[in-house]
Design a protein around this nucleic acid. Sequence first.
DNA 1: AAAATTCATATGGAACAGATATGGATATAA
DNA 2: TTATATCCATATCTGTTCCATATGAATTTT
Lengths: 303, 303
Amino acid sequence: MDIRRLRYFVAVAEEGHITRAAERLGIQQPPLSQQIRALETELDVQLFRRKPRGVEMTDAGRTLLADARRILSDVDGALARARRTARGEQGRIVVGFTSSAPFHPFVPRVIRRFRELYPRVSLVLEEGGTGDLVAALGAERLDAAFIRSPAPASEGIAVHPLLEEPMVAALPSGHPLAPKSRKKPLPLADLATEPFVFYRRASGPGLHDAIVGACHAAGFTPRTEQEAPRIVSTLNLVAAGLGVTLVPESLSDMRLAGVVYRPLAVKPRLTAPIRIACRAVDHSAAARHFVALARREGPSVTP
Amino acid sequence: MDIRRLRYFVAVAEEGHITRAAERLGIQQPPLSQQIRALETELDVQLFRRKPRGVEMTDAGRTLLADARRILSDVDGALARARRTARGEQGRIVVGFTSSAPFHPFVPRVIRRFRELYPRVSLVLEEGGTGDLVAALGAERLDAAFIRSPAPASEGIAVHPLLEEPMVAALPSGHPLAPKSRKKPLPLADLATEPFVFYRRASGPGLHDAIVGACHAAGFTPRTEQEAPRIVSTLNLVAAGLGVTLVPESLSDMRLAGVVYRPLAVKPRLTAPIRIACRAVDHSAAARHFVALARREGPSVTP
DNA sequence: AAAATTCATATGGAACAGATATGGATATAA
DNA sequence: TTATATCCATATCTGTTCCATATGAATTTT
């Protein structure tokens, strides 16, 4: 059974003439007669009754015609779908992100833009710690991930910087340093004696190390009072008055009751990056599109 | 695009090896490699990544695999359906009948039996006058019809006798001839002076002519008092006391209030036939099966 | 009765599928 | 590390299939 024969059959069925169908198909009449006969022999079914003025479909022919039309359009659809998938215009990608990433407006913007550009690609989002995300990338359970940590030395994983945002201090609202002209940058050294609330290093080593490093540069080692599994949880602990912490500026969009944010005065400027991680040789065209889009949109939002 | 290539593709996708798939398909490895490559070239899509230990599907390949499986099973189904239709095991036939036919248990029995034997053939029933039925047969709107009239001289229509049943007299229950030992045959001449209710000749000339002929043989011409469009309606008129009539015995199964049936004493025996009409050269295998079944079952019910 | 239309058959050439032989790359084993 | 095995790709050849041209047969139309 050959798709070509089905197309020939449909043409003959629709024209009611072998000769006319041959014209439409761009071939001569004798080979078309042969093909129809071959199809009938293959099925052991008479599809047409030969008449002096053309051919007439049998019941079996009518049955096959309906099926053949459906099959042909299904084949065309399948080819189109395969091509679209290869071009990355169709399919499914899974994108991971660390808990703090979606607070920066850049991340939801990229996602929204991708959905507009590639409406046939279903985009699944998944939250996780940096380590989990990178592992999932390697295991092909994820196609890309927004992370804040620096490149984890994982084989075959590429990490591209997207943007940097300043860190700010998060203080309990009753804290002595809180009300003092909030706009004025707070010297990091002022927090030397404060208890710190940390995001668990295992979940996001990059942010953690950056904070500790900055404190060392300012001349002190931060005293860890509490650890929280998610960056949002650290803010809840700050709100409860258990300590202070430093968070990426975009987190301050979350106006949590009991938390006050202040910009930092620290040299060199303390920033938190947003990066995108993906497999170095990525096979999913849709995933490549996603990463490319993020890298293209990245610079335009750097403050 | 060739169905064979799709089958090859599915085999390779399922095995994950070109060599193993070639074994399964009963061909050698090189031509299979060529076919897969040809398919990729045709689609302009990479379907597999060649690895030293086999091949690995791409996203596009996975997309195509799902489609290909569906298409292949659809093709198989289409072939099976075409073959079944050719064998008359699938399809649709329309069977007509005159209003009086279904009263004889033979007709519903044939229909029931056909439905059992050919469950995939949908059987549509249509009632009509003999003339309409024969015309519909010629116009291919009908595939067979149960009629009572003799062969209408219509070109290309074959009529086969199925069975004969005796005629009985239908009298109003208050009629003087009604109560007289109902089992005893009634001489037709006794009805010579009675007003007759007739089934319209145009709708069923066979029955009409048979009755009038029998009356003539008995020495009188029946006086037509009323005509009714359907044979059942004549019985309603008899019940209303407007006259008497003769009906096929099977009609007496309908125990209509106000109507009494009596067997007839008449030489030669007055009978009503049931026949089946169909196209002489019928192209529908299912229709041929139906007619053959009716003719086969017919003799077994002749009383 | 002749012409026209349409499908079937015959024959030759081009394209294609499949077989065998062989090469190249990578993983596995010694 | 070297050797072997595995697996896919390439090259060449053969048989089949598909299509074109030429022609025949049957039926309808002029």
